[in-house]
Nucleic acid binder design. Structure first.
Lengths: 205, 205, 205, 205
DNA sequence: CATGAATGAGAATTCATTCAT
DNA sequence: GATGAATGAATTCTCATTCAT
């Protein structure tokens, strides 16, 4: 009758509700009702409630894993870093509801056998846009760049303006941050005496 | 024995558990057990579970409200913006567990009659460090500055290094971001021709 | 591949699991999984879960029915009684898992439309090794003889020693019990004056 | 209102229903309904369904533990063995419904974190009425003696006759069995040549 | 012969909450 | 101030069973 797409439909509705109300506030009854199936049907497709989240996570997280994998293969040039940020943004918006969910249900997700996995990914990415051995400030800059993109989810919903314009602005700021960190570290290594000079942003003429 | 401070103790333990496990995953039974009182005792001090959170929120959020109030009184100079960020960081670390809780339970908090309140505060602060009418990129920079501080909670726990050093680095990066936005807007208004020149980060040799 | 013997395989696996975990604790899903077929396949071969048990019962209980039938044809001599016990033991060990199941799931079996049937069989057998009108003690002896054999199932698994040796010992004790009952009843009938004298076991020097 | 006896009432009703229908076939709803309380009330008094059984078990099993303890202190004379059997019978009938339950739900009980405990107790008792190093047949006799008493539960319900008379008959048979084992072992040790002679039961004039 | 998909009924358990004492 | 006892409503999950294909 409904043909093999039920599993997919469960995932869709579940994600929608999880993102909207949170994981614990969303009951399987609710999901089932919205799908006009019985609770038991959900259990035909997923072993537990947690399993639904895990499946969502796996399905939608793949792009990021691929990005990490790809990045590891690349040289750590500024060009590549830019590309990483750009692709990360794409991955985030492709899976926007999931990431919104992940962000807004961290406490829950942390106990959900995928939490660590997500944090690990973030740390992996941070390290990939960061020069090894760079100073604390630059490490913060890189973290900040990634969080800026996450902030985008919030930003996109709560601040007025053209979405596309916002997207570009977010990317620009993130790239700025990583660029600064990149240059400072480069100069730090190659020409330490130039350091003060490069700090740039705070010391403007 | 424990005399009169029970209300306080409930708040402490509740916050601890809420921050650790999340709001919904923490039951009143758990709180009561850890305090070695009965659930009913909690109801002597708080009308509902939600009430506990609301009370925490009110107690610990005051500094931020005061900060907002104070900021509104001040001229929008760079100096003041710096001060705002600095004070915001202090407020955040003073109430670290609460903010960790707020951040990790957004989905829950959103339905909790205080959620909007929190978002509103964020938006108020963003506007206070932002020049009115500034371009999208600069708005993002300000948002990013605030989120950088939030990222600090994550950062503080998951990245190695001296806490004080981290704190300073975070503040530095946030100030950087706001400073950039500040200068660009100034120049944009006063000397539009200087704009390109000021962009700094994107204009690499 | 497995061709036609599926019904048999279901019975085997079901009995195995029922004996191991009990009837209610064993779900059809479990049986199906162990067989690597679907639950629905079970329903092709058996109308209900209960049906599986009933079929097992019927298949494996026949020897006992035959034994009862045969016994009824025989004269009630001591020789025959010995034979009955011996054959009963054989029947029990041939169907050991079933009887283990019956013994360990009596509460369940009782509601299963076969329970009474089993009890009836026991009573029938007891009567066949017992002299009609014998005294209470001798009736107990006969009951005890049969239960001794049942105890064998327990004994076999929880006490060390050579299985064959155990089997013989069990049979010996059972025969002893029935023999005593047999003789006492004989003498009771024929030479009542000898009774006290025969009590034997309780009369210590 | 109902005063502190609710816990007791739950145990009573639960045992009644467990003994009647079996553990798994008895739902907490049923117990609660019969008591005219809510299911949740049961959970106020017991942490789980299993806990109810465990509590029953503990409350009612104590006499047997005490019997075992006492027996260990005594010399292994025939007198003492008689006493053990006699007391065991008393313990059994005092806790008749529980033992009926244990016997009829062995498969269930086995997974219930008390199963082994029960078996261990049986084995302990068997060893206490048995001469160390006695032959297989005599070991069976002792096992049989204990099982005879268990059979009593069955016997009492399915065979006609005065209960008190039955009780005595059961005890007599059990004592007979242990007595035989006792004597045989004694003579075996002291006067091996007398062995045949002592077997008694099989060698009748 | 067998499966994939689904259901309806019911299970155990948990939770926030109440209230007489 | 606090407790012991209880409730009502919900939740996750499991199970035997069905049926079109």
């Amino acid at each position: 009758m409904t043909r093999g797409n039920t599993r997919q439909r469960i995932q869709d509705v579940a994600l929608e509700l999880f993102a909207e109300q949170g994981y614990e506030r969303t009951s399987l009854r609710e999901i089932a009702e919205r799908l006009e199936v019985t609770k038991a049907a959900l259990y035909y497709h997923f072993r537990t409630k947690e399993d639904i989240v895990v499946s969502l996570f796996k399905d939608l997280t793949r792009p990021i894993d691929e990005l990490i994998e790809w990045s590891k293969q690349q040289p750590r040039t500024l060009e590549i870093k830019r590309e990483i940020l750009c692709r990360y943004q794409e991955a985030l918006s492709a899976a926007a509801p999931l990431f919104r969910f992940m962000q807004e249900n961290q406490a829950t997700v942390r106990e959900l056998s995928i939490g660590e996995t997500f944090k690990e990914r973030m740390i992996a990415l941070i390290e990939l846009v960061q020069e090894p051995g760079s100073c604390m400030t630059d490490r913060v800059r890189c973290i900040s760049a990634l969080f800026t993109m996450h902030a985008g989810m919030f930003f996109t919903q709560n601040v007025e303006g053209d979405p596309e314009e916002k997207r570009e602005a977010i990317l620009e700021v993130a790239i700025d941050l990583v660029t600064q960190a990149h240059h400072r570290s480069q100069s730090q290594t190659e020409t330490p005496w130039a350091r003060r000079n490069e700090t740039g942003l705070t010391a403007e003429p």
